[in-house]
């Protein structure tokens, strides 16, 4: 049954600018999916609270949580979370060398919630 579903659902192309639509389509296609969401920002942050990045188990992604500054780190974490199923809150700041090797050049700080889509 699952194989049939894959074939029928794959015909619908999602709007690639809409991460939640992409996430649903990827789930229908049988891909394992994580959703990252900006939950808090301080100072100058590139993407507003509520912005989404969607990631699959191979590291494919759509959407954004920053201007491209921290996506790499979020994707790496998301791939672990797809495995474990345990959600995590990530925090990024400017030149935050101790916790993360990536940071926001704009000088802001963001927190990102990463969770697996289950079911």
């Amino acid at each position: 049954m699952r194989h049939k579903q894959r074939v029928t659902n794959m015909s619908k192309e999602p709007n690639i600018l809409d991460p939640l639509e992409v996430a649903e389509t990827w789930c229908s296609d049988g891909r394992k999916v994580a959703l990252a969401t900006v939950i808090e920002t301080w100072g100058s942050a590139p993407r507003p609270i509520g912005s989404h990045l969607v990631i699959d188990e191979e590291g494919n992604f759509q959407g954004s949580v920053s201007g491209g500054c921290v996506e790499g780190a979020v994707i790496a974490e998301a791939m672990d979370i797809i495995e474990s199923g345990t959600p995590k809150i990530l925090e990024f700041g400017v030149a935050d060398e101790t916790a993360w090797r990536v940071g926001l050049s704009c000088g802001g700080r963001i927190r990102v919630y990463v969770e697996r889509i289950d079911g």
Binding site: L20, E21, A23, E24, C27, L35, E115, R116, I117, D118, G119
Partner: peptide, 14 residues
């Protein structure tokens, strides 16, 4: 997040 939750969000948005 459950997949059904994601679907409910997308149905409302559509």
């Amino acid at each position: 997040m459950e997949r059904s939750t994601l679907q409910a969000i997308n149905v409302a948005r559509a």
